[in-house]
Design a protein around this nucleic acid. Structure first.
Lengths: 208, 208
DNA sequence: GACCTACTGTACCACGGGTACAGTTGCGCA
DNA sequence: TGCGCAACTGTACCCGTGGTACAGTAGGTC
């Protein structure tokens, strides 16, 4: 009876999450109605509540999905950077360049960061989701901080450096660049912010 | 009959806007109910709709109020910076330091940026509000870009510089710093991001 | 005493989140 | 061949909130 035999288990759940992410990034979580999600996916309300016991569970699943995708992208990009360069500093700089290029080459504007969206509506969510969100930022901090300190072993900076802040600035540049890019409808803003961050990293460890 | 004779015209309107801003930054615009605003201010629903014909007009008034306050703060800070230093570069660097200190010395965590909050819910608003929001970012860009180009006349940078991106990075650092600060509940993140931006500006025009 | 500003009071509707639960369909498996 | 399970559908219903509509009123000003 079904014209599509390609249906896999969990497929619907994934579709709901994808549609929900796009909607939340455009309108916020509260104004994303379950009604519109089921209409877009082509299921009924009962179908939705089969997958998620309430809207809060949807939020949690969205966050987990986002963090997973995010981690994978970062891993890929910076691994490729390191493959192109043995040196910790130059591998990192190549990684940052690849990162900027990835955003520059997106077919359309980046829809935004779910962590930022949730952050500006955090009273809607329970502590579990806020903790997930904080953990994802700490993962960025750890990743970049460890790299920066590794670089500092080979290239000791002449000035004292706030490594934590410099690590955070990677995430901060992305968040800031996404917001400005959206507000001005200019896709070039985000990659250029990342390249400026790259300039700062290079200047921090400059050997001249 | 009224125990308070201190009531001034427009006072209620201002109270509504202040309460609404705090609520929107905590929960988002959509989930900020008119009900809770009037409860906090102590008026009735009819009183609310006397001041704003609908929720959209409230949003517009919030945005206008936010932009006005924002402009005033920036003017004050960077004017003081320039009073302390004649040189365009060093006046700017002092201004950035004052800016960072302002955030560091806030009695409690900065509640967030209304422009960012609206940005992540922009489908809720009409074009007028989105235009206001974009204009406020362009005002930051213009302010910082003009200053950077002025500095470049005295301190020509040795490397080519993306002045637009470097100007945008001021706003971007604030937006990014606010988000990270909120997510990690750490008030020091934002001022430290601004100080890193200051480092980048200094390095860009370094004469050594 | 007329007029204006800044409200109050009352009544009402539509929509969406959420609950409850019974029924159905197709697939894997014994 | 039939059993059970995952993944739904169908129906019915409650309630809170945004939003509309509009009439009334208290206090100050000219």
């Amino acid at each position: 009876m079904l014209e599509a035999a390609e249906k896999k288990p969990r497929d619907t759940r994934e579709k709901i999450l994808a549609v929900a992410e796009a909607a939340v990034l455009a309108k916020g979580f509260a104004s994303t109605s379950i009604e519109e999600l089921i209409a877009a996916v082509g299921i009924t309300k009962s179908g939705f509540f089969y997958h998620f016991k309430d809207k809060g569970e949807l939020a949690k699943a969205m966050m987990l999905r986002y963090i997973e995708q995010d981690t994978k992208v970062l891993n890929d990009i910076f691994q490729r950077g390191d493959e192109l360069h043995d040196d910790p500093l130059h591998g990192f700089l190549v990684g940052l360049k690849l990162f900027a290029e990835m955003f520059a080459n997106l077919p359309e504007a980046h829809p935004g960061c779910l962590a930022a969206s949730f952050c500006y509506q955090d009273q809607l969510f329970n502590g579990e989701i806020r903790d997930l969100n904080a953990a994802s930022v700490l993962a960025w901090r750890k990743r970049f901080r460890e790299r920066l300190e590794l670089i500092a072993k080979t290239y000791p900076p002449k000035q004292p450096v706030d490594f934590e802040a410099l690590a955070d600035m990677a995430a901060s540049s992305v968040e800031g660049g996404l917001i400005l890019g959206r507000l001005l409808k200019d896709q070039t803003i985000l990659p250029r912010q990342i390249l400026l961050y790259r300039d700062l990293v290079r200047a921090t460890f400059a050997s001249d």
